[in-house]
Simulated assay, not measured.
Amino acid sequence: MGRIGRISGLLAAISLTLGLSGCGAQYDTTSPRSAREHATADAKHVSLDTSEGGAGAGAVDCAKAKCVALTFDAGPSENTPRLLDILKREHVHASFFMLGKNHIEKHPDLVRRIADEGHELANHTWSHKILTKTDSDEVRSQLSRVQDAVEKLTGRKPLLMRPPQGRTDERVSKISKELGLAQVLWSVTAKDYRTTDSALIKKRVLEQTDRDGIILLHDIYRGTVPAVPGILAELKKRGYTVVTVSRLLAPATAEPGKVYRP
């Protein structure tokens, strides 16, 4: 590769990093595979949890199975009941990174249903503020308000959070750690916020999905939920087991403050 080609490749890599993390923020990430391997080697991190997303006996072992995590951001919404029906029919559990304002507060019944049907409850902030551009007190408020609301409705607090637009940094990580939250980014995005074309959403997901990936979708957009049955059918055909984020990490347990990304 010539000098121009090397420079072009470097710029492309930098652009990808900036696009995901925002503003060139620096932080360390841990892959699901690395988390599992570390937990296996270090017995003190092994979880025997048999609850939501845990590593209990009889559950799928993603060190052996070809797993991919399915996640939904920014709900619940009026589309979520149909999504939950689909997931129940297909015997699939997902991780729901929920917003507080106009979502948790508007659909408390759906938060309870998500919990009751064995899905993973997760935090996407109260009002989708960009945390890296928000002062520390407001970052705490954005996260803790969701924690408190979910605990009030379900009896338990989320262990995972996804920063809006994937933008995080060392300060956000420190506050997340204080609140007992690990951060989860993604490797697959259909950009379903830009299209209502369900066939295109399905195509984009399937083109990007690989083992140990984390799929990002939104249960607030009209085209997304109709794409889910086809996505699940094709993933199954390709030999994937669809799991929650915590199941993907197991036998590791997500560590507060850490940033997980495939």
Results as ranks from 00 to 15, higher is better:
K191S: 08
T132V: 10
V92N: 04
Q183H: 11
E105T: 11
P81F: 09
V205E: 05
Q183P: 12
L235W: 04
E90T: 12
K237N: 09
A233Y: 00
A94T: 02
R113S: 13
D192N: 03
T50P: 06
R3Q: 12
V150K: 01
I4M: 11
T168W: 07
A57E: 15
E234Q: 07
K237Q: 10
K191I: 04
A250M: 15
D137R: 10
R113C: 13
L217M: 09
T241G: 00
V150P: 06
R211N: 10
K202Q: 12
P262E: 00
A39I: 14
P251I: 10
T71L: 08
W186D: 05
V111T: 05
R204E: 05
D42L: 12
K202W: 02
E78V: 15
D109A: 08
K44I: 13
K157W: 04
L153C: 10
E170M: 14
T80F: 03
L16F: 06
Q26A: 01
R171Y: 07
E117A: 03
V228P: 04
L206P: 02
L235E: 03
A59W: 05
F97W: 05
Q142K: 07
N102P: 01
A74W: 09
V245S: 06
R6D: 15
D148Y: 07
G2Y: 10
R145A: 00
T134Y: 00
D49R: 10
G239C: 14
Q165A: 14
H91R: 15
D210I: 08
V243G: 03
Q165T: 12
I7N: 03
L48F: 10
P81E: 10
A12L: 13
Y260D: 02
